[in-house]
Amino acid sequence: MSGSWTGKVRRATLEKYKPEDLLPEEQPAYVASWIYIFGVATIAALVMLIASGLVLTLQGPSWWHTSSVGHYVNSVHLWSVELFFIFMVVHLWGKFWMAAWRGRRMATWITGVIAFVASIITAFTGYLIQTNFDSQWIASEAKDGFNSIGVGAFFNALNTGQAILLHVSLLPLALGVIVVWHIILVRKKGVVPPIDNDATIEGGWK
């Protein structure tokens, strides 16, 4: 067995994150319920969001404001956001009422919370870069809000360039990392069983 750091990292990773856990072929019987589909529905909406966002980024505001295809892709981005948040909130409700942090799944719950907050911040910066009267009005109102809580020196909502960079690079990157982490944890720990299932006792409340 090699003592190189690459070998050590590989063995430690495979020991902690087993391929059969990360890419399972079967799921527990209790997963056969509609309430369990909203996590993956959220991811599907996120994929549509990123895909339509990439097209909007490549073509630019003059395209999405004036052309028919631009209007269409802009609408796909909007409705993907609507579905993304609807699915995510229903997923949140479902996981809250089944106490999904049971069985040492606290990190899964917390990464989900962080993903939710990061999504809201990303959506807010999206409002700012529509480049229309709506975004101007929202930016001027948000500027007053930020100034009133004393953070205006750090974030200026009227700075469209800053909002664009946050919306298309930094925040999606952070959200992507946290979502991947969340999914890996779900795979590693398995889908949380129903509360009255005996399997929950084994993991304990942690």
């Binding site: 079967e26 509609w34 309430i35 589909i37 909130v89």
Partner: peptide
């Protein structure tokens, strides 16, 4: 209201069972 309706429907609508949904692991 739509989210609430979807949530309630998801709890009570029957899910089409498949052959892969038999394993019960911890």
């Amino acid at each position: 209201l739509s989210m609430m309706a979807i949530f309630i429907l998801a709890l009570f609508l029957p899910f089409p069972h498949s052959q892969s949904g038999k394993k019960l692991k911890k």
